[in-house]
Deep mutational scan, measured.
Amino acid sequence: TTYKLILNGKTLKGETTTEAVDAETAERVFKEYAKKNGVDGEWTYDDATKTFTSTE
C-alpha cells in the first residue's frame, strides 16, 4: 500500500510517499524521515486517503 506524507515544517515543506504493509509501519518511516529533516510537528492521519500530515 502506498502512503503519503505532507510536511508543513517551518524550514521544510513538501511531500513524499512510501510503500508499507500498514499505516503503523508507514508512520514509523515518516516520523524517522521528518526527524532526519529537522521537522518536529503535530501529526494527523487520514485513512481514506492514506495520508499523514506533520505541521509545525
Rank of each mutant, 00 (worst) to 15 (best):
N8Y: 12
D40K: 10
T25C: 07
T16H: 14
T51S: 04
D40A: 11
L7R: 00
T16N: 05
E15P: 03
K4H: 13
K4I: 12
T51F: 01
I6D: 02
T1Y: 14
G14T: 15
T2S: 08
G38C: 07
T18L: 14
E56Y: 09
K31S: 04
K4D: 02
T44C: 08
G38R: 06
L7C: 07
E42D: 12
V29H: 12
T18Q: 05
T49I: 06
L5H: 02
T49G: 04
T17D: 04
Y33Q: 02
D40T: 11
A20G: 03
T17Y: 14
E24M: 12
V21T: 11
F52N: 00
T18C: 15
Y33R: 02
K31R: 15
E27R: 12
R28S: 08
A34L: 10
T25L: 05
T16V: 15
N37K: 13
D40S: 11
V39S: 04
Y45S: 01
V29Q: 08
T55Y: 09
T11V: 11
K10A: 12
V29Y: 15
T44L: 07
T55K: 07
T17S: 11
S54D: 04
N37R: 13
T18V: 15
K35W: 11
D40W: 14
V29A: 09
N37P: 01
E32H: 07
Y3H: 02
T25G: 07
Y3D: 02
D47I: 10
A23C: 14
K36T: 10
R28N: 07
F30A: 02
W43G: 00
E24A: 14
L7A: 02
D47G: 08
T1R: 10
E42N: 11
T44W: 07
D46S: 06
K4R: 13
T1P: 06
T51I: 05
Y33L: 05
Y3R: 02
Y3W: 06
N37Y: 15
E27F: 15
K35Q: 11
Y33T: 02
E56N: 05
A34H: 01
Y45T: 00
T25S: 13
A48Q: 11
F30G: 00
E32G: 05
T55F: 09
T1L: 09
V39F: 15
G9C: 08
T51M: 03
E56T: 07
A20W: 02
